[in-house]
Structures are given as C-alpha cells and as structure tokens.
Simulated scan of single mutants.
Amino acid sequence: MTDDLKSWSPRQRPDGLSATGRTVRIERIVDDRRFGELYDAFSADAEGTLYAWLPYGPFESRSNFMDFARRTYIGGEPCFYAIIPQASDRAEGVAALMRTDTVMGVTEVGHVCLAPSLQRTVAATEAFALLMAYVFDALGYRRFEWKCDNGNAPSKNAAARLGFVEEGLFRQHMIVKGRNRDTSWWSIVDTEWPALRHAFSRWLDPANFDGSGRQIRPLSEFRG
C-alpha cells in the first residue's frame, strides 16, 4: 500500500470465511454444532490455565459453557471462527476478528483460545495464516492487530513468532477479573504481508517436516 490513499474505499466486514489448509480448516461459527467439541477439547486443560488471561472462564459445567458460547460466539461482532484440525475433524480452538474498522481497513484477532491438543501444532500456525490471508488478500485490509495482557508471555511470544511487530504498551488499559491489565499492542500491515505469506508457505511445505512431523527449519528462519 502506498501513502497515496486518494482512491481508498471502505472494505467489507469479515463475516463469512470458511477456509481449508493442509492441516486445518477454519469455519465461521453460526450455530452451536461445534460447542460440545470445544467443551471437550478445552476440558483437557488439567492445569486450569486456559482462561488465565481471558476475561471469562473457567466454566463449572458443560451447560455453563454452552450458555456462554451461545451468548458470545454467535453473532456479527466479534466474528468467531472454530479451528478444526484435519487430523481430528473436531473443533479444538476459537479465534475472533474483532474491533473491525471497515472505513480504515483495520481488524484485530482476539478471544484466542486453543485447547491443549491444538497448542504448539502446525494446525494452529496454519489457522492464523489462513486468517491473515483472509484479512489481507480477500478483504484488502491495511492493518491486522494482536493485543494481549503485557504479563501474558506465551501470547507475546506467539505474536512475535507469527510475524506481528510490537508497537508499545497501553498502561492501565483495562480491568480484567479484578486486576489491572497493561495491554501490549502488536500489528502486521499490508506491506509486510507478502513476505510473511511467502514465509508461511515455505514453512508449511511438507518437505519442511520429518517423518515424525517435526519441523526441520523454524518459521523464524523463513521470515528472516
């Protein structure tokens, strides 16, 4: 994107993506068909850390989660997606496109919740790559944001690994579960996306994984 934006026009709101990759697919959540799968996958979090940095959870029962999911996951904003690894064909995570500004071409990925079975997997990485491709290639947005509690080191590490650039800290930005949240802001802009798209493509190539499915070269090398 050049600095000359005289021809810029508002973009479409994210509202209907279903995309399939080599190891995962993402589906817009429009009903409760996947909620039981999500509850089962999230319930494998024996350490009880899955909701540590989210403003909700943990849930006392399946019915509590189902009520929450119906209120939260179904609707227009935020726009929630189920993350479904090809290996299991069951939903094992969610992510949302949110705080979308169609006039400026900006959206944010948030409400990320990945079951233990999905964390640190090729499918998880590819799911984020599919969302980025939707935002930049299909919708033509200028900016894709990632925000998290500044104390959430795993989230910040994930953002950096996926190619987001750290921009700064919003102090005392929110109150979450009775405590202060300083928010760390990250982004990818459209001029950075082509190189990042290429890096994802090379990392996801089956030739980059050995017979046990372990990566041969990390994503950071392809991004380098």
Rank of each mutant, 00 (worst) to 15 (best):
D4E: 14
L54Y: 03
C79S: 15
G36W: 06
P116W: 00
R22F: 12
L114D: 08
D89N: 15
S184T: 05
S212F: 08
R161Q: 10
S7F: 15
D3T: 10
M66C: 09
D190V: 14
N208C: 12
G178P: 01
Q86L: 12
T125S: 09
F222G: 04
T2H: 13
S18V: 15
H198L: 14
R99C: 10
R22P: 07
W146N: 04
F128H: 05
P55Y: 01
M132W: 06
R62F: 14
F80C: 09
T121N: 02
M132C: 11
D137H: 03
L17W: 06
A91P: 04
V189K: 06
D149G: 02
G36K: 11
E167G: 08
G16C: 12
R217C: 07
S61A: 03
F128T: 01
H111T: 06
T191S: 12
D182F: 03
S117C: 01
E47C: 04
V122S: 11
M132R: 14
A138V: 08
M1Y: 11
L38F: 00
A46F: 10
T183P: 02
I74E: 06
D3G: 14
V122F: 10
G36I: 07
C113A: 14
V103W: 10
V176A: 03
H111M: 06
A129H: 11
M132F: 13
T20M: 09
G140D: 04
R142E: 07
G168Y: 07
G36R: 10
S220L: 15
R181S: 00
Q119R: 04
A127I: 02
A69E: 02
A87S: 14
P58R: 00
L54N: 06
V176W: 02
A129T: 05
A159M: 13
C148K: 02
Q215R: 12
M1G: 15
Q12K: 13
V189I: 15
E126P: 00
A158E: 07
D32K: 08
N180C: 10
R143Y: 02
R179P: 01
D4Q: 14
T100D: 02
N64Q: 15
Y73G: 04
K156P: 03
F59M: 05
A95D: 06
N152A: 01
M66F: 11
S184G: 07
M104I: 08
Q119A: 03
T2Y: 14
